[in-house]
Amino acid sequence: MARGALWLGQVLAGPAIWAVTFAAVYALHGTGCAQGWDAMATPVGSVHRLAMALAWGAGLLACGGLLLRFSGTETRWQALPRMGAWIGLGATLFSLFPLIVLPAC
């Protein structure tokens, strides 16, 4: 029982990290634009962009960690958690990269 639930959790881990990261960056974006964080500067960009970039980086690192953790590819049972981690990494990278190329608000 527990083994199956744990395995499902492993498959869902990567996409779940994407979901959390995506929601966090979107929330930081909306809050920052409404509260004027864009105007607060730091040496490496505005507070707003820094906060979003940190959340993004954390999500990418977490997915990378999952990829290292789920190394098996031999059986379907082993491969799916790894595919989940790839989904998380790819989706986080692709869906949030606009935060480094576009103006924030």
């Binding site: 974006h29 634009c33 790819g90 869906s95 990269f97 935060l99 576009l102």
Partner: peptide, 15 residues
């Protein structure tokens, strides 16, 4: 909505 937020959702919609 600001363009950057739209861009996130545009990218996710393509993905």
């Amino acid at each position: 909505i600001p363009h950057m937020a739209l861009a996130f959702f545009s990218a996710a919609s393509l993905l």
